[in-house]
């Protein structure tokens, strides 16, 4: 046996490095170069619509970002989507996961149908919900009117537009939360419930003291993944409202896009990017630690 393991070790490093290298090389030139540029540009007063050459300006752009009300508006919108989305999707997801975690005919079919929204092209989603939200001819208002409501202009009303985006996000991602929580529920051994039953626990007590604590790791994943994805939400917003009406639904990604494509502010947009990068790095570090710890265990 000893011989085998030394045999395995021989030439291991060279071969391993050789096969690992190509993608790492590609990733580095794709990432490191651009980010060095981003960092560099963020220190310059640099605007493509102004003929003046870029001027080194220290932290001028970062100051602008933090004084920019439109940035804070985008920050607020993104945070609202994040918090409302995570809470709603966790609760709904848990309910549906419980409903699915029983024995019944057509179980597989039900799971498949519920999982469908996850992989729908985001652009299609935006377009499709525009029809559904249509003030006069959309099915949503039709159903609301059938139930006695008046119907609303979902995406044109500044007070409702962000809520409409939240609904679309919830429609697409509750299934994802459901699947994760369902996997969590299925991994709880039956004996645990039997033990709780023997101890005379009521249904609610079992849920509160047994199921929820055992689902905790899954909830951690849900929160972190949803945080990451909502943080970069772009496509559905772009198609549904384009950030409007006004800037009522502008998210961080959308504002960065506008600041680049509409105003060609290289320096400012770079600073905006760096700020988002820092926020994301902090979130990612929490997450990476968690994943790596689990891997080692």
């Amino acid at each position: 046996m000893k011989e085998i393991s030394t045999n395995v070790l021989i030439g291991k490093n060279k071969f391993a490095k050789l096969i690992t290298f190509p993608s790492v090389f590609i990733l580095i030139i794709t990432v490191v170069g651009p980010f060095a540029f981003l960092l560099y540009a963020s220190f310059f007063d640099w605007n493509l619509t102004v003929p003046a050459p870029p001027r080194f300006a220290w932290f001028y752009n970062f100051g602008l970002v933090f004084k920019d009300l439109r940035f804070w508006n985008a920050f607020k919108n993104t945070s609202v989507l994040m918090i409302a989305g995570i809470i709603t999707q966790s609760i709904l997801g848990l309910i549906i996961a419980f409903l699915l975690n029983r024995n019944f005919r057509l179980k597989k079919l039900a799971i498949t149908i519920i999982a469908l929204p996850i992989m729908v092209t985001p652009v299609v989603l935006g377009f499709n919900w525009r029809i559904i939200y249509h003030e006069h001819f959309g099915p949503l208002n039709y159903i609301i009117r059938l139930l006695g409501g008046a119907g609303s202009s979902w995406i044109a009303d500044p007070k409702l537009a962000l809520f409409s985006i939240f609904l679309v996000d919830t429609w697409q991602w509750t299934p994802f939360v459901t699947l994760i929580l369902l996997a969590g529920l299925q991994s709880i051994p039956r004996q645990v419930y039997e033990a709780a039953d023997v101890d005379g626990a009521t249904g609610w007590q079992t849920f509160r003291r047994v199921t929820l604590p055992l689902l905790r790791p899954m909830f951690v994943l849900v929160v972190l993944f949803r945080t990451i994805w909502i943080f970069k939400i772009f496509d559905p917003v772009y198609i549904l409202t384009g950030g409007g009406p006004g800037i009522a639904t502008e998210t961080l990604s959308l504002y960065t896009y506008v600041s680049w494509v509409k105003y060609w502010r290289v320096g400012y947009t770079s600073a905006l990017g760096i700020v988002q990068l820092i926020i994301m790095t902090i979130i990612a570090m929490i997450f990476v630690r968690k994943i790596m710890r689990r891997r080692r265990a």
Partner: peptide
């Protein structure tokens, strides 16, 4: 890299 908001990479 999996957590990177793609919009940041767009400009560079």
């Amino acid at each position: 890299l999996l957590f990177l908001p793609p919009i940041i990479a767009v400009l560079p």
